[in-house]
Design a protein around this nucleic acid. Structure first.
Length: 190
DNA sequence: CAGCGGATGTGCT
DNA sequence: GCACATCCGCTGG
C-alpha cells in the first residue's frame, strides 16, 4: 500500500485511469510531519486536443504543455485567481490527457469528512500549489498514489463547470464513488 | 438555494 | 489590453 502506482498505471486511456483512481489513496509527504493519506472519491477525465473542455484543446501552450508530456506527472493550475486544482497526466508521451482530482476523503482522521470536498479544497488541504506542477507521481516523493485494495462502486455524470464546451459538456466524464459523503456539488448531477 | 464577489494567471485580440 | 476561468464562502430570501 505504500508503493507509488507505477508509470504504467498512468500511461493508459484517460477514462480508464480516471475510473481506476477512485478508491486509491493520495499520499502527501511533508518536510517535518507524518504523511497525510486521503482516499480519492471524485475525478474528471479531460481527453486532450479533441475535448473542448480541456486545457489541451488549443494544443500545447505554456500552461498546458505538460498534458502532452510523459504520464504520471502532476499538472497544477490556478483558477479564478485563488484556487488551485490538481490533475494527473495520462496517456503516452506526446498524447494529451489528464484526470482532475475533484474530491478526496482523509483516512485515519476525525476530520470533517467533507474537508477535501472540491478541487480547490483538495489542493488547499494537501498544500499543493503551482510550484508543485510537474512533480513525478511515480516515486515516493512529495505526492503519490497508492493502492490499498479498495474496490468502490462507481457512478458517472457530466463534468462540473464546463458549460462553455458545447456537446463536450454533456459527456459523462465525471466519476465518483457512489454514496460517498465527500463527493462535491449540490449532489451528484446527471 | 440562488446570487455574487474575490484576485490573478492565461491566452486570444 | 482584456475577458474569462475544471472554485468557494458568504449573503439574503
Amino acid at each position: 500500500m505504500t508503493d507509488p502506482l507505477p508509470v504504467a498505471f498512468y500511461a493508459r486511456p484517460t477514462v480508464t485511469v480516471a475510473r481506476e483512481l477512485l478508491g486509491k489513496v493520495l499520499v502527501r509527504r511533508w518536510p517535518r510531519r507524518p504523511p497525510t493519506h486521503a482516499r480519492i472519491v471524485e475525478v474528471e477525465a479531460y481527453l486532450g486536443v479533441r475535448d473542448a473542455a480541456s486545457h489541451a484543446r488549443r494544443g500545447p501552450t505554456p500552461r498546458s504543455a505538460i498534458m502532452f508530456g510523459p504520464p504520471g506527472r502532476l499538472y497544477v493550475y490556478l483558477i479564478y485567481g485563488m484556487h488551485h486544482c490538481m490533475n494527473f497526466v495520462t496517456e503516452t508521451d506526446g498524447v494529451a490527457g489528464a484526470v482532475l482530482i475533484r474530491a478526496a476523503q482523509l483516512v485515519n482522521s476525525q476530520a470533517d469528512p467533507r474537508a477535501l470536498s472540491g478541487p480547490g479544497k483538495v489542493c488547499a488541504g494537501l498544500g499543493i500549489e503551482l510550484r508543485h506542477k510537474g512533480l513525478d507521481l511515480t516515486t515516493e516523493g512529495t505526492l503519490y498514489v497508492a493502492d490499498d485494495g479498495e474496490k468502490p462502486r462507481i457512478g458517472a455524470s457530466s463534468r462540473i463547470g464546463v458549460d462553455y464546451a458545447g456537446t463536450w459538456s454533456k459527456r459523462r466524464l465525471r466519476f465518483f464513488i457512489r454514496g460517498n459523503a465527500a463527493v462535491s456539488g449540490p449532489r451528484p448531477r446527471v
